[in-house]
Write a protein that binds this DNA or RNA. Structure first.
Lengths: 334, 334
DNA sequence: GTGAAAGCGCTAACAG
DNA sequence: CTGTTAGCGCTTTCAC
């Protein structure tokens, strides 16, 4: 016929084909009011032409891009992959596309990604913040709808986090119950709440609290390994360690093997985050399971439902006992 | 001051502030020609106002969304997470946002996601195709720029894949060298090339080729476990198995333990895809390492550089020997 | 070299 | 209930 055979088909062409105005087509397609007859005609025309409304036009008009932005430190880390899966799963049920960015836990890179997001006029974002979240201030002021996941670093941003306090306390209590007193914590630098929770737990049980008992690592496998190896080498007196994440746990197992430190005979190990391989590991790892997927899902719900936004939702963790912890032996290692 | 203090600042306001026309601002900002003096003024104004060009306006005008769409079966699977990381890494250097979707290896869900992508006018996509890729035909016809990753299911789509033939052959030869003859393969249903490669390798070495020696699983942990357990139970004569992916490998180890089948004494195991925990596993797993990250990176390069698009790039795999394979013992298991 | 003007496809007023 | 119209912010002819 006459319409441009080239390019994608637009609302105008549907309107012509249906013999109505473009506004009517728009209305019908977005569930507005229209007579049954008109609705019929429009729907038929749209179907016949295989019309797909362009998100471009709509977004420009509405001055915002639909969809949600997601910023995680490392998509390769099982925890964040599962968190991402939760976000995607929720977003899918709303038909919202998700744009993913990797920050590498680097505030600078994070700021850059935020820039990209606002350039896209993406007004809803879920992020695992890298630092203290100060670079979010401008975006927040600009009305960006953001929800933090996994880490709560600003009280003015709704956050979905695991119950670190309870998780850490459970781990420490379990270890203390086994007779351990010198308990160390290896964590990511960013995870300050968890460290605080650890110190609190240690204190509440009257255990020794050297500063050296918490060691920090950046979120790379190498850094994790270095931290674990350093701890194991320099502190033969610690008999139990808590690894603040699956990458840290993996590093701890590797370092222990390399240094010929036996788990759990020489040192007991509890890892934050349950992963499929924890059971396959030798020995199977006792872990504090975290609901990574749920965290993502809930965060997505929060960011999608603009309505009531509670300041923070905390999801429970769970101790899964396997075989990487044992009673403290009386003689120090080596 | 007259400009609307509300909302984001537009090119028009920059033009006013710089005392030039909007076209000039646009030209300067996209590197077009302009006098040094004008350029100066525009840049100054833009900086002063902290102007960020809206991707919305640009995209509508250009009738295409920048950025790239990425469709993977399961972001939770380490292999696809690493592939995704590769894509993100490459895209970042181009400043292109990446929209990720999870297909669950379900062609229907995949088609749905393709729909979402074209609705967004996203014209570049990387996908790990679920089925035979037939649902891509319309999108392809519509001029969508797509490249396949990990699986080559259509010859009319550029693809970046691991060298399955060589990888499988290496694994089979290694196992055969250890004396194994009844070698089984557990793979995803979709991975037809790998199965073909397996049969070819078996044939070329003159090994038995029962149909039951290749068993399929859907890409879920449960399905993988069922497949592995079934194989181990019903075929006590097989002495070696090749798992077509890390999820399958994990399932095989679990199933073997459950059924009290010892690795490598009772059966040898080679897993496709090297993952951090392969070394931590008991026993450490011998694997065919795949360059997941590279696959993603190269695919992104391909889709970003519209130019010369080779029909397929094949990336090498590598046998990493650890401790999950042993010589065949003369007596059959049990 | 620069500005004015015409839209990209869509939705939201506003009339009819 | 429905059509006409005015842009959303940007790029791109096309004159000057």
């Amino acid at each position: 016929m006459s319409g441009p055979s080239q390019g994608r088909i637009t609302i105008k062409e549907v309107a012509e084909a249906a013999g109505v105005g473009v506004a009517t087509v728009s209305r019908v397609l977005s569930g507005g009011s229209a007579s049954a007859e008109t609705r019929e005609k429009v729907l038929a025309a749209a179907a016949r032409l295989d019309y797909r409304p362009s998100a471009l036009g709509r977004n420009l008009r509405r001055r915002r891009t639909g969809g949600i932005g997601l910023l995680v430190p490392d998509i390769t880390d099982s925890f964040y992959a599962r968190l991402t899966d939760g976000v995607l799963s929720c977003a899918r049920s709303y038909g919202e596309p998700v744009t993913v960015g990797v920050t590498g836990d680097d505030p600078e890179r994070e700021a850059e990604l935020i820039g990209t997001l606002i350039e896209q006029s993406m007004d809803r974002v879920i992020a695992v913040p890298s630092g203290d979240g100060e670079m979010w201030a401008p975006a927040l002021r600009a009305g960006l709808n953001v929800v933090f996941a996994d880490r709560r670093v600003r009280t003015d941003v709704p956050s979905v986090v695991p119950d670190d306090r309870a998780g850490v306390l459970t781990a420490v209590e379990y270890l203390a119950g086994l007779g351990h007193r010198k308990i160390a914590y290896i964590g990511r630098h960013a995870q300050s709440q968890r460290v605080a929770a650890f110190r609190a737990a240690i204190a509440s049980l009257g255990l020794p609290a050297d500063r050296d008992l918490v060691v920090h690592a950046r979120s790379s496998r190498d850094s994790a390994y270095a931290a674990a190896a350093g701890l194991l080498q320099h502190r033969p007196d610690v008999t139990a360690v808590i690894a603040g994440g699956n990458v840290l746990g993996e590093a701890a197992v590797l370092a222990a093997r390399e240094l010929d430190v036996r788990i759990p005979r020489d040192v007991s190990l509890i890892m934050f985050d349950d992963v499929p391989w924890a059971e396959l590991c030798s020995p199977p790892l006792t872990v504090i399971a975290q609901p990574a997927q749920d965290i993502g899902y809930r965060a997505a719900e929060l960011v999608l439902r603009h309505g009531r936004r509670p300041p923070a939702v905390t999801l429970p963790t769970q101790l899964v006992v396997r075989a990487s912890c044992g009673p403290k032996v009386s003689s120090p290692r080596r």
